[in-house]
Simulated scan of single mutants.
Amino acid sequence: MPPDQPESSRGRKRVRNPVEWKKNLAKRRRNMGEAYVSRSTGRQVQARVMRPPCADGCYDKIALPIVTVLHREFWAIGNFALQNAYIQKQVCKKPVKRHRPVQEPNEARLRSCTLEYTLAYADQTYTICKKGFLAILAVSETRVRTALKAITTTGSPREDKRGKLIPVNIISDAQLERAMQHIHKCN
């Protein structure tokens, strides 16, 4: 290789950033309802905003300043499990009041319970419709459904077990230390 040309550099293995807060920044911002850059796609995701009011007038029933406070306080929780617990507390399962006669006797009934959506502010509880509840909290119907599925038979919320398993291929600190000592001893 000629002396005036620099030596070609080989690629380096990427080193993970040891700072914990940078690693979970997107996750924390998503849980807070703020805008963030997706770690998987790299796209900018917009912040959570309240959706337009429902046709039933739930925003008028509660008043717009209170609606904005409820939205802001829900997303200020910042913890997915605690937000689910909040949803579980505000949505109440009640038995269906009236069953209409079924045309086919072998046909199963469609619903066994009705969901009642409430929001509480300053010792006052407001009963609102489903669309209004989803619009105020800016959550999807799936989020509410999965939060309600996580309630145990006693009524307490079940722990979310995602991301808490220990990987099978993890190297213990003792093994890592022995490997480092072996490398230093050989050099």
Rank of each mutant, 00 (worst) to 15 (best):
R145C: 03
P18L: 04
A179Y: 02
M50V: 14
S40T: 10
L110T: 12
N17C: 03
K22D: 05
R51Y: 11
L115V: 01
A122Y: 12
L165S: 15
E104P: 00
T154G: 11
P53T: 04
N106A: 13
P6C: 08
M180H: 11
L134A: 01
A120S: 08
N187F: 12
R72P: 00
I62E: 04
I171W: 08
Y59K: 08
A47T: 05
W21L: 12
E104I: 09
Y121P: 02
N169G: 01
R100Q: 14
N106H: 05
G163Q: 01
K97E: 06
R72A: 11
L119G: 03
G78N: 08
Y86C: 06
R16S: 14
G11K: 12
I66M: 06
H182Q: 15
I77Y: 06
P2L: 09
F80D: 15
L137V: 00
R109Q: 05
R98L: 01
V67Q: 02
I66C: 11
C54A: 03
C113H: 14
I128D: 00
Y59L: 09
T142Q: 15
T125Y: 06
K131H: 12
S156P: 00
R12F: 08
A108F: 08
T152S: 11
S38L: 04
T114P: 00
G33S: 04
R48E: 08
P95N: 06
M50I: 05
M1I: 05
E159K: 09
A81G: 10
Q88R: 11
Y36I: 10
A47V: 03
H182N: 15
R162D: 15
E141V: 08
V49M: 10
N169W: 00
K89M: 09
R145F: 09
R51S: 12
P101H: 00
T125P: 04
V96S: 00
